[in-house]
Design a protein around this nucleic acid. Sequence first.
RNA 1: GCUGAUGUAGCUCAGUCGGUAGAGCACUUCCUUGGUAAGGAAGAGGUCAUCGGUUCAAGUCCGAUCAUCAGCUCCA
Length: 647
Amino acid sequence: MVITLPDGTEKTFPAGITGLDIAASIGRKLAEAALGIIVDGRLQDLGTPITRNAGVSIVTFDSPDGKEIFWHSSSHLMAQAIEELFPGAKFGAGPAIEQGFYYDVAYPERFNEDDLRNIEAKMLEISGRDIAIRREEMPREQAIGYFRESRKDPYKVEILEETLKGVETVSVYHQDGFADLCSGPHLPNTGKIRAVLLTNISASYWRGDSSRESMQRIYGVTFPSDKLLKEHVARLEEARRRDHRKLGAELGLFMLTPEVGSGLPIWLPKGAIIRNELETFLKGEQRKRGYVPVYTPHIGNIELYKRSGHYPYYSDSQFPPLTYKDETGREEQYLLKPMNCPHHHLIYSSDLRSYRDLPIRLTEFGTVYRHEQSGELNGLVRARGFTQDDSHIYCRPDQLVDEICNAIDLTRFVFNTLGFDEVETRLSLHDPANQAKYGGTAEVWEQAEKDVKEAADRMGIKYFIGIGEASFYGPKIDFIVRDAIGRKWQLGTVQVDYVMPERFDLSYIGSDGQKHRPVVIHRAPFGSMERFIGVLIEHTAGNFPLWLAPVQVTVLPIAEDVHDYAREVYAKLQAAGIRAEIDLRSEKIGKKIREAELSKIPVMLVIGRNEQEAREVSVRRHRKGDEGRLGVQEIVARLSEEIAQRA
RNA sequence: GCUGAUGUAGCUCAGUCGGUAGAGCACUUCCUUGGUAAGGAAGAGGUCAUCGGUUCAAGUCCGAUCAUCAGCUCCA
């Protein structure tokens, strides 16, 4: 029997050999690190006998597959520990996730922190017993009996009876007295799991259904060594350090207060500078690309949203309507606007449009209000009042793909400028199985999705498909970045819409003199200014590039006798339009520098007697240190240039 | 919205068994005039989230509300 390894080398083995044997034949270390094996593209247990010629690769913790196996087995290990410590606990679902695993547990008592520590200790103890993990296949009917009678776990029985209805044979993994219904694969033994951290407990509904019983979901992460766990903990601490809510307060960027309302961020002067710079940047870029600015009110007649179809779709996540009654008893209802599109559509149809006028690109930083569920609110990244860098492009069908490409190009330009280089792109398509969720006809959707794909392919972007992620009026291209804690956030978006033009009866006069229907593109490179800046804060850890820094330069005189010269330098910076501060306190230079470093000011200009005599400044860059002396004109010119370049 | 946790000075946090509130940093004033990440001294700062209850007495115990955090569910 011939086994082909990933590097192309071929080895001959007797039939029935296992992955572990193959790993051992390559090296002792690999045998130790091996967690599973991929045989002809299929991930399986290390102990599964291989009976014919195959291409194999050994899976270790370094690969995503390896982590998946490791953490999935860890969830079983945790379940076993819980079962030993808390007899009677029943188990729901326990998968591996991106950063570890969880298990949903039904148990009458609430678990607390101490319980977690005890479970951790028990897991390590079980790991120390180095129990073999054994796979057993059995007919589904037999498994139902097993889980009902022996394991007494109603949740597994439910999975067997419903989710796995059509399946003949299922697999059960055993380790000591513990057994779990699971397709696998799993680790060969529990001993591989050497470091355990249970991170938190939360509630979850059985099968994600809020009408079903609530279970306790215990999250954890495990590693093959303590060293890896320590690194993981260090990453978590770094994430906490970068949390935009913490940095936003420390750096005086924004605030949230119940006196205004939850989820309603207030921009403080320093945060407003960042937002204003970003807006100025995008406005300038859009001007170059043929967008025209408009302004629209913050509320709109409710009829507008009924017409657009937003109201019925999203009435539960809107602030309740404002009702106005005049003396005659006539009633009008207004909605705090949850999106800008309807206003823009009315601007479009306020005039007769010729095919020669298209595309028309209306743009506005439009503030919208959505009553997000209280549990969803999260600093700037999930707020109830936020501002979209919203534009609507009205174009002819023959211009559509070009216009989508332009919007993608702008979005990419924005992300590159801001230093987001790891952006995932999702083509968000509709779910054909759930057509009722969407507006428009099947043909229109087919066309729209074809156009979106064509544009994405032409722009050469790498994307993945998200079925059911489309909005109700059309497919989208979504740009997704991760925050410091690894959570994903959708920022920019480009959306195609054939539905709104119908609803608002938008038209243009074609070359044939007849009325035609334009197509609308909704696009927002930043998405929401609040969310974008929230993610930007975490991305930069508050160390903003010079052009965005709320305070760009601080002038630090060493002693009082150079205050006059320091003021002169400060005045020159201000005159050049550089955001500068001056620290005239009677503190030592070390303290002034420390405070400037902590407030993450990019440039410090230290001035003492030597600098005064030479008409120079000592330049110190944040996190870099002393960079030597420069003439005043020189430093002003260099900083101005760096700001202009948005470097 | 649901489940759980949390809420004490501007910030980070102590506060024991229920007996009228504490530290460090920041802030203010004074002294100090210094060379690349914390000079010294003094002072000021609190409706212990809010409302109600138990008690002779509540930061502490109980309940409700609000907010925040974690997760679930949702996301134009």
